[in-house]
Amino acid sequence: MTLPQQILTIAMVVLGTMLTRFLPFLIFSPGRSTPRYIRYLGKVLPAAVFGMLVLYCLRNVNLLGGSHGLPEFISLALVTGLHLWKHQMLLSIAGGTVCYMLLVQLVF
């Protein structure tokens, strides 16, 4: 990507973020109720979006070749285990990342 393309990409991200933050204040007035469809999406959408993002992070994993995605799956299992056990967000993230780094550097 050239520098102008990078700037445009970042500008799009800024624009998207600001749209989601400013829009409610521009279109809804306090006291008036929010459309039900919007409230429904607000309740159900986050779970699906974060699921999609986990897949996005794993999109380049090759199950058929290389390390068959084993470092990813082992580290994700550790993240899940740690998080269910200790409920410390930073610990789960750090633990899983260190595990993954050790696996790709020393084992696979």
Binding site: Y56, H83, T97, Y100, Q105
Partner: peptide
């Protein structure tokens, strides 16, 4: 090498929460 997994771990944790 492998530090980029931090993003995967972060979204996995948010997903779990």
């Amino acid at each position: 090498e492998g530090l980029d997994f931090v993003m995967t771990a972060m979204f996995a944790v948010i997903f779990l929460e």
